[in-house]
Simulated assay, not measured.
Amino acid sequence: MTSRLLLISPAVGPALREARFYDGSSSIDEAGTARARAAAGGLPEASRVVLSPGARCRATAEALGLRGVTAPELAPLDAGRWRGRTLAEAVATEGEAMARWLADPEYAAPGGESVREVCARVGRWLESLPDGRTLAVAEPEVVRAAVVHALRLPAGAFWRLDAAPLTATELSGRTGRWNLRLGRPLGGE
């Protein structure tokens, strides 16, 4: 059998608009909610629905009409002491650490985790998926990590992948062999 995974990135909210490191509490805004509601009818049937634990993924799922279970493995990349700060604030106070974190997939954010760690965590979850279709509303960095793992890309490719708000990235296959279809708008063909 084949596992099919549809990763849905959350709708837009204040943290994304402000280029703020996500702290798990910021939700989506009215425009994001409206876009998610408009896309709700275009989702395929799924055997299971799972959610990243953050507020914006839960709110996006609700606006899409989805009920699911939270998967801690799908938590966003832990930015440590930068959580809740804007990118500009972190660069201004810890520019050297920020540059190293963005350049070296082994380097953990101060008090947080490295890109390699989030890719490994998400990869373990991906390889544990049962057969059938899974819908996951997941943070953009979780989508990136899943693609890095599925395609066996170097962890350094993580920052070169974008997961736009309310897009679907599809992985299908089985353990060790995945195919990718990425970035289609929700509700699209």
Rank of each mutant, 00 (worst) to 15 (best):
E94Q: 13
A15I: 01
P10L: 10
L151I: 03
C57F: 06
R116A: 15
A59H: 03
T93P: 06
V69Q: 15
E127A: 06
A146E: 03
A46H: 09
V91D: 05
A145S: 13
N179H: 08
S27F: 07
R83H: 12
A59T: 01
R116L: 12
P165M: 03
A138H: 12
S172K: 09
D131Y: 00
R58V: 14
R4N: 08
V148R: 02
S26W: 14
R184Q: 08
A46Q: 04
T175M: 08
D162Q: 14
G84P: 07
A157N: 08
R58F: 06
A164W: 06
P165A: 05
R37C: 06
R17Y: 00
L6C: 01
A59E: 15
R35W: 07
G188W: 02
G111S: 10
S27H: 08
R35C: 08
P44T: 02
R133V: 15
D29G: 10
N179S: 11
G176I: 11
E113L: 10
G112M: 08
P44W: 00
P154T: 13
A155N: 11
A108R: 14
R48E: 15
G112Q: 09
V122A: 13
V147S: 11
E18W: 03
A138D: 09
I28R: 12
P76G: 13
H149I: 02
A36Y: 01
L87P: 04
A55G: 10
L166C: 06
L153F: 02
P10V: 04
E189G: 11
G41L: 09
S27R: 13
C119V: 15
A31M: 11
V118W: 05
G65V: 12
S52F: 04
G80W: 02
P53W: 13
L129V: 03
R37N: 07
L7K: 06
G123V: 10
L171S: 12
